[in-house]
Design a protein around this nucleic acid. Structure first.
Length: 364
DNA sequence: ACGTCCCGCCAGGTG
DNA sequence: CACCTGGCGGGACGT
């Protein structure tokens, strides 16, 4: 036991900037992650590589990766290695989730109830591409919401975060519920056993998930009509940011990637204690501006069919490229499709679109 | 005071 | 056995 450096208050070195939790939030980290790996043709993603680049511990990467994988953006390839599927993989993943959810009992929340708990664990066909023969099935979680009673060992792996993420998404995709608070979601997802701690932990996880999903603009934090209880609204697609793909015809928004608005960069990121390694790359300063892009979601953002009966009718997902803002120019060198070492450059150009709820700082 | 949620301990899993 | 994964909850930060 090496006496770990206790305390953190104030940093012992130079400026003792009161670090903000917001700057280390999963949501922001996710934005950085997305921005970092969405550029050019990135195929593989190393976890420790990401951790180093983002200046966070591995543990946090797992959190992000698990939720990203749940929506199809990433796919586990091997140890420490993930495959970047891209945002374009989201629609498909969502559809699968929806399909799965409908087969189960996700269609009974809010308003109507339909306790039709079909425990059918039928293996849905995976439209997925890569099919590793190692694990034929098992990919499908057996969502045992309430009344599970079956202590089926099932998958020891993927217990919470990934599973919970999918269930959370199913909630939106399979029902007409567009707005929901995490408490509600927690209750729904774990049945009714609101036994103190269990639910508290659940909610904690949901916060993590919601933050990541928010950074992707799949959901947004708002509040219920009554105004009071914060809740999350499903957006599906509708992020702003230009895209190379054509969007719906009615995207009047210019989504022009104008040059970054003033650079109010805040150098943050790991300044605390780091791992043993990570010495060469001092701290890369990520220029991040807490800009609140309050884009008007005019038009119909359109979410995947909210009709409960419509099975496979509207499959045209107009995924709007909610790509984290553009600017795909990599400074330097195109001769390295795989790895990008220019952290500094990358960091400089990168611009996360942190979604800030609540106040709206006019900056654009 | 309560809502949000970061940090990292430590237990399984895997090679 | 070392290392990778990731559940889980304390308790600090935010409002």
């Amino acid at each position: 036991m090496a006496a770990p450096p206790p305390t953190v208050t104030g940093g012992d070195s130079s400026k003792h900037h009161a670090y903000s939790r917001k700057q280390k939030s999963l949501g922001l980290l996710c934005s950085n992650f997305l921005c970092l790996y969405n550029r050019d043709g990135i195929t593989s993603i190393g976890l420790d590589d990401a951790a180093s680049r983002l200046g966070v511990e591995r543990r946090r990467i797992y959190d992000i990766v698990n939720v990203l994988e749940s929506v199809g953006v990433l796919a586990r390839k091997a140890k420490n290695q993930y495959t970047w599927k891209g945002f374009e993989a989201i629609p498909k993943a969502l559809k699968e989730l929806k399909d799965e959810g409908l087969k189960e009992n996700f269609s009974s929340f809010d308003g109507n109830d339909d306790s039709k708990v079909s425990d059918d664990e039928e293996d849905d066909e995976r439209i997925s591409d890569t099919r590793t023969e190692s694990q034929p099935d098992k990919l499908n979680p057996s969502l045992n919401l309430k009344s599970s009673a079956s202590s089926k060992p099932e998958n020891r792996r993927e217990k919470s975060l990934a599973l919970l993420t999918q269930n959370f998404v199913k909630l939106f995709v399979c029902t007409s519920v567009d707005l929901i608070s995490l408490d509600e979601a927690a209750k729904l997802l774990l049945g009714d056993a609101h036994n103190s701690s269990i639910m508290r932990t659940k909610v904690r996880r949901l916060y993590d998930i919601a933050n990541v999903l928010s950074s992707m603009n799949l959901i947004e934090k708002t509040h219920t009509s009554d105004t009071r209880k914060p809740a999350f609204r499903w957006l599906g697609f509708g992020g702003r940011g230009q895209s190379e793909h054509n969007i719906s015809a009615h995207e009047s928004v210019v989504t022009e990637s104008k040059k970054r608005p003033f650079g109010a960069d805040i150098t943050n990121i790991s300044f605390k204690r780091n791992k043993m390694d990570l010495g060469e790359s001092l701290n890369m300063n990520f220029s991040k501006q807490k800009q609140v892009k309050q884009e008007s979601y005019v038009d119909e953002i359109d979410r995947i069919t909210f009709d409960e009966d419509s099975n496979e009718s509207t499959k045209s997902y107009q995924f709007g490229p909610f790509a984290p803002v553009t600017i795909a120019r990599v400074g330097a060198s195109e001769n390295n499709p795989r790895k990008v070492h220019d952290l500094e450059k990358l960091a400089t150009i990168y611009r996360p679109q942190y979604q800030n709820q609540g106040k709206v700082s006019i900056i654009s």
